[in-house]
């Protein structure tokens, strides 16, 4: 304990998120023919209790970017405040220059890594997508500042359950319809296997024309699989 206090210096009353309270689960983003598509459900879990059912976890940032977040919802809201400030000051120059997705992604990486170095991380995994000057961009940042770009990215459970599907089925020139179908396939798997996922989701699209975030909707599900009805069958020793 003393060693931790030593690291924190004189900030003895420092407040930090020791563990997340209200959290959102996976976000998935993919590139498609005209831009980027992103999807996330609208659940907000209070610990393991599904406490909130209409949390918007994807927001547009400026003209060219779209941000999705999983993890601590209040920390996401704080990040949105930082970005609103950033975009406002960028616009106030009024000089024709504006931040693209690459700039926002790097800025977020700086924020996340800086906060983890203060031992006060923002408890999120972020997905940042965008299109600027015909250039598609998709990247992710973790709560400790790990960042990378890829053709498809996912956070949390999505990394384990959605990305294998995307690795098999994603291709460069997916049409909008194909891309939505692929995302829904991933979200359905997550809905079945991730206990925090709920059946109310949004799909957000960003292209050269701008951002559109869909109204919430549900997926068709089928719970009649044998494995669902008798989950312990074939697993000797479990209850």
């Amino acid at each position: 304990m003393t060693s931790v206090e030593g690291l924190l210096g004189c900030e003895q009353d420092s407040q930090r998120t020791l563990s997340p309270y209200v959290t959102g689960t996976s976000v998935i983003g993919i590139k498609y023919k005209d831009g980027i598509l992103m999807t996330a459900d609208m659940g907000g879990s209070y610990g393991s209790t599904l406490r909130y059912k209409s949390v918007e976890r994807m927001k547009s940032i400026g003209k060219h970017s779209l941000l999705g977040a999983s993890g601590e919802i209040s920390d996401f809201q704080e990040i949105l405040r930082y970005l609103d400030e950033l975009i406002k000051y960028d616009n106030m120059w009024d000089d024709g220059n504006s931040f693209g997705p690459k700039e926002i992604h790097n800025y977020l990486t700086r924020i996340m890594y800086n906060r983890r170095n203060k031992f006060d991380p923002l408890w999120n995994s972020l997905v940042l997508g965008g299109v600027k000057n015909g250039q598609k961009y998709l990247g992710t940042v973790s709560m400790i500042g790990v960042h990378f770009e890829d053709n498809h990215v996912a956070t949390g459970f999505g990394n384990h359950l959605a990305r294998p599907i995307l690795r098999d089925e994603w291709k460069e020139d997916l049409s909008y319809e194909e891309a939505v179908k692929l995302l829904e396939k991933c979200m359905r798997v997550l809905l079945y296997r991730d206990r925090s996922a709920i059946n109310k989701l949004q799909v957000a699209k960003i292209t050269e024309e701008g951002v559109t975030i869909s109204q919430p909707y549900s997926l068709k599900t089928f719970w009649g699989f044998n494995a669902f009805q008798n989950p312990s069958k074939g697993a000797e020793g479990t209850w």
Binding site: W93, N97, K102, E103, Y107
Partner: peptide, 9 residues
């Protein structure tokens, strides 16, 4: 911070 060049203006 932004991994891009500062606009000259």
């Amino acid at each position: 911070t932004y991994e891009s060049p500062l606009p000259v203006g």
